[in-house]
Each structure stands twice: as C-alpha cells, then as structure tokens.
C-alpha cells in the first residue's frame, strides 16, 4: 500500500510542487511586505466594521501575528492544502473513469488497501503542504517582525493539515460512491464552501452562533495558536471526522462494483 501511495504522490508531483510553491510564496512574500504597510493596516483595521472584523475571526490585523493569521492561516493556506487533498481524493474516481485502475484492481492488494493508498497519498500531499506552510511562516514571521515560536507555528498548522485531510476524505468518499471525478471534486469544494458559510453566518448572527461551532472551517482555527491557546477539541473533531469519512470510504470501496 505504501509503495502505491508513494507512486500516486509521484504521479501528482507537479500539483504538489505547485501547491507548496504557492504556500511558500504567500507565507514568505506577504509576510516580508508587512513592515512596509504596517501603519496603513493599523488605520484599515481601526476602520473595519465590527461585523467584518467578526467575519475575520476577530483577528487583529494591526499586529504582525494577526497579519500572519489573516494572510496565511485564515484563507489561503487552508484552501491550498484542502485543494491539493481534493485533487488526490478525486484521483481514485479519475483512475476508475479512465480505466487505469484496472491494472491495480487485479493485484493481490485488497480493495480497502487500494483505496487506503489514495487516502494515505492525500495525507502525504496535505502533510507536504502543511510542512511547507510551517517552513514558510518560520522564514516569513521574522521578516514581518513577529516573534513566534516554532511550537506555535506547528500548533497553528496542524489543524490545517487535519482540515485538508478531512476535505480530501470527503472527495475520496464521493469518488468511491460515484466513480465520478467531477462529483468528487465538486463535493470537496462544496464541503469547504458550506463549512465556510456556516462559520460566517455563525460569526455574524448571534442567535446562530452555534453554527460556527459545528462548522469544520472553524475547527481549523485560522492559525489561532499563533496568538492563543491550541484548541485540542477542535483538532480532535477534525481528526475524528477525517477518520470516520476516510474509514467509510475504505469500507465502501471493498463492496463496490468496478465496471472496468
């Protein structure tokens, strides 16, 4: 299974390199620019309406740490990590549609291991992207004038990795259920958008604040450990969610007819 996972990773190396380069560019490039418009940001942050500030997760844009969270952790990094995972998770359906799965499906590798190879592969891709984010912030934080420990950077990035795996697992599950790569990709992005909207509505409307707590988007914390405590429960929710969805995908694939 590991041999196949590494092979799948190799087949998506352009994607992985592109995503990692993007994360590195955002982390280092954006953070290096911070000192040049720190004052403008202060004014901008002061003028922000409360509702919009809430939408940003009450991140203080005027501090280097807040800037790191807003530019890296709140949107770009989660989207890139999750996007890479979706691409790999939907790959199983793509291999079924173009029939390249045939040569693998008749090896002694059990079906669950076959789907498991895709699952492990999406974890490796999300892991590579998350690791790049850690390295990027480690390089970029001092350039932005922030004093953030490696432990805090890792703690902020770990939930993004788990979020990416959860979203990729959703794409994998739909791959297994439908064998349609378009549906799998769409389901992954729908999951992201839906959880983002739930989180936003919860942030904006007091009576619906419970929506935030059930939204996986909020569970990744938008880099909260950079300034605050690590939310172990939210991280656990992401891990358990990913395990349940991925496990369901593996179980279902074992019982799935393959019309290759």
């Amino acid at each position: 299974m590991i041999a196949l996972s590494l092979d799948l990773l190799r087949s998506r190396r352009t994607l992985v390199l592109g995503i990692c380069a993007g994360i590195l560019l955002v982390a280092v490039g954006y953070l290096a620019l911070y000192p040049s418009f720190e004052k403008q940001l202060q004014t901008f942050a002061d003028d922000l309406p409360d509702a919009y500030r809430a939408l940003l997760g009450d991140i203080d844009l005027a501090t280097p740490e807040g800037y790191i969270r807003s530019q890296v952790y709140s949107l770009i990094a989660p989207l890139l990590i999750a996007g890479a995972s979706i691409a790999v998770g939907s790959g199983l359906a793509r291999a079924e549609r173009d029939q390249t799965l045939a040569v693998l499906a008749v090896t002694p590798l059990p079906r669950r291991s076959l789907a498991g190879a895709w699952w492990l592969s999406l974890m490796l891709v999300a892991g590579a992207a998350a690791l790049t984010a850690i390295v990027g912030v480690m390089i970029g934080a001092p350039l932005a004038g922030a004093d953030v420990s490696i432990g805090r950077i890792v703690a902020a990035t770990l939930p993004l990795f788990a979020f990416g795996v959860l979203v990729g697992s959703v794409a994998l599950l739909v791959s297994v259920l439908t064998g349609a790569p378009g549906s799998a990709t769409g389901a992954g992005w729908l999951f992201i958008v839906a959880s983002f909207v739930l989180n936003s509505v919860g942030e904006l409307i007091d009576s619906a604040s419970w929506l935030t707590s059930v939204s996986p988007w909020s569970w990744h914390g938008a880099g909260a450990p950079i300034t605050d405590a690590f939310d172990g429960w939210a991280f656990l929710a992401l891990v358990v969610g990913a395990a349940l969805v991925g496990g369901l995908a593996l179980w279902r694939f074992e019982h799935r007819n393959l019309h290759l």
């Binding site: 029939q99 390249t100 040569v103 693998l104 002694p108």
Partner: peptide, 24 residues
Amino acid sequence: VSDQPAPRHHTGASLLRLLAKLRR
C-alpha cells in the same frame, strides 16, 4: 481488461517495478 489503458505517468518499466512491489 478490454482496451486496458496504460497509466500516463508510468513507463512500462516503472509499471512493472510497481507491480513487482504490489505482488511482492
């Protein structure tokens, strides 16, 4: 299988190496 395609990213040699690992 009928009209079995070849994986795009594999050469024949690399596919054989992968199958050797999967089949031990």
